[in-house]
Write a protein that binds this DNA or RNA. Sequence first.
RNA 1: GCGCCCGUAGCUCAAGGGAUAGAGCAUCGGCCUUCUAAGCCGGGGGUUGCAGGUUCGAAUCCUGCCGGGCGCGCCA
Length: 585
Amino acid sequence: MADPRLLLAERLTAAVAAAFGPDFAGTDPMVRRSERADYQADLAMGLAKQLKRAPRQVAEAVVANLDVADVCERVEIAGPGFINLTLAKRFVEREAAALASDRTLGVPRAAKRERVVVDYSAPNVAKEMHVGHLRSTIIGDALARLLEAVGHEVIRQNHLGDWGTPFGMLIEHLVDLGGADARARSDLGELGDFYRAARVKFDGDPAFADRARRRVVQLQAGDAGTLALWQTLIDITKQHLADTYGKLGVQLVDADIRGESFYNAMLADVAGDLERRGIASINDGALCVFPPGFANRDGEPLPLIVRKQDGGYGYAATDLAALRFRTGTLHATRLLYVVGSPQAQHLAMVFAVAAIAGWLAPPVRAEHVAFGQVLGQDKKILKSRAGEVVRLVDLLDEAIERADAELAKRDVERGVARDAAERRALAPAIGIGAVKYADLANDRIKDYVFDWERMLAPEGRTGPYLQYAHARIRSIFRKAAEEGIAPPAAGTRIALAEPAERALGLELLGFGAAVLESAETLKPHRLAGYLYDLATAFTAFFESCPVLRAPDAAARDSRLALCALTADVLARGLDLLGIEAPERM
RNA sequence: GCGCCCGUAGCUCAAGGGAUAGAGCAUCGGCCUUCUAAGCCGGGGGUUGCAGGUUCGAAUCCUGCCGGGCGCGCCA
C-alpha cells in the first residue's frame, strides 16, 4: 500500500520519460497535496523552460502518456500547467483496507538503513533537571522513535555531566553531610539544594574551596575512597533521572547513560593523537586546534582548546573523544546532537576538528539538531514566579495537576460522576501529553512561548484534542460491545460513500509519508501537524457519519473498520511523539 | 565588531520555489431527546519587518538594511 504520492510520482516520471525521452526521467514530478484535487503535480512549468515549449503543452504531453487508470478518476490541467489528480474512490477504499491489515500502518523503510547515535537529554550529576533539559529530552526521544520506525538502528546516548571540577566541591559537601551513609538519610534531600549548598560553601569558605580543589585531584588520580563518594552521587542522580524519565514517559534508561567520565581515559590519547599528527599545537600553554573558518572577536583564528594550560581537559576534549568513540567503536554512520542552538559554534568546531582528524569522514556525518528556547509569556526565558529556573519535576507535576483540574471541571460541566482515583490515573497522560505536544508541534529551531492555558485548554490544537479524538473512537467500540456488535473482521471492506468518509480515508493514507518526512527532516512537528489534520478529519466524519446507527450493516462495518484504523494511526502517531493515547477521557 | 538563529492575522503557530498564504485562540453567527460538545459548521480579520535581486512563479533562494535572541580562547 504505497503512499499515493509515491505511486503518482512513479507514474508521472514514467509519463515524462515516455513523452520527452529518458533524459528527463530524473525530473522531480513535484506531487503535492492540493486544495483543488487530491494531489497536484507541478512539474510542467519547470520542464517547459528546459524544453522551450508552452507549459500547458508540456502538461498535456505528460497527461497523454500518463497511465493512472487504476488510480485516478480524474486528471485535469489547470492554470499555467498544474496537473490536478483526483484519486478514484475505489482506489482509496482498497488502499485504506490494505492499510488496516498492515502492521506498519503504511510507514515505509528508509532507503538506507543506518546506525544512528542520538545524543539527547544530557543532565548533570547532583543537579536537578530544569526546563532547559525539557526540549532536548522530548525532541530527542521523539526523533529516536521516528528513526526506529523507518527502520534505522538507533543508539540512544545520554551524555551525563558526571565529571569535571564541580565534583571536588560536591564530594566535599557530601563528606560534610556524612559521606556515603548520608544517602540513607532522605537521599540528600533535594538535589538542587545540595548543589546550591555546595556552591555557597565553595564561594564563601576558603578552607572548603581548598579541600574541594584537592578532591578534584584525588578524583582524577583514581583514589578509591573518592571514587566511592563520587559513585554515591552518581547513584542518587540516576535514581532521580529514572523517576523523571518515567514521569515524562521517555525511553531513556540507565543503559543509555554514557557520561563524560566514560571518556576520561581516552582524553590523553585524543590529545596526543592530534598533537603527534600536527593537527593540534601548543598556544599560550594550551593544546589548540584552529579549524578554518572560525574567528574570535578580533578576527583572529579561534581555537578549540583540547587541553588547558593547567594540563586538564575541558569539554571539547570530551566531545571529541565521544565523537571518535561513536564513529570508531560504535560504528555509527550518523550522529545526532540534540542540543540547544547556543552550542552551534562549539559543535561546529568539534565536527570540523573531527573531520580534520579523520574521525568523521563521509558518508559518516554529524548533525547538530538545534532547538530554540522555552519562553515565558513575557517572551523571556521561562522562569518560575520567584524568578528562578523552573525545575523539570515541578513543571511536570503542575502539568498533571492542571490536567486533573481540567478533567474535574469538565466532569462537572457534563454532569459526569467519575471518582477522583480514576481521574488522577488519567491526568499524567493528559498533562504530560499536553506539554509534549505543545513543544513538538512547533518547528524546533524556533523559540516558543510556554502557556499552560493554551496547551491544556478545553479547546484548540492541543495534545488533549488528539487524545480526545482517539478516546471517542474507543468509546464507539465500547458501545458496540455493549450492543453485541463485533469489532470489524480482518479484511472488512471499506466503503467511502460520504465526503467526510472519503476525506478521512485519504488522510489516513498519508501517515507513512508524514512519518518518513518527519524522520528524514528531523522535524517532529511535521508529524504533529499531520496528526492534528487526521484528528480533524475524524471529528468531521464523527459528526456527519453515525457508526453504530449507520444505514445498514455493511456501512456500519465499513465505518467501524475506518474507526479502528484511525484509532490505530492516532495512537501510533502519538506514540512516535512519545505521547500516550488513553482509552477514555 | 564578527558569526549563527528568528521576524507570517490582535495573540500562539503552520505552509518541500507553485494557484486565492493556512490552522488554533480571541471575536461574530449557527449545531447536543442520536456513538464523549475537550466537538462540528459558517463569517470577519494579511503590504509574510523593509528595500533590491534571481525565477515563468518567492513567506521560502541571494544581497543590503531594520528589529529581537544567542554565541565569540582555557566553564559545560
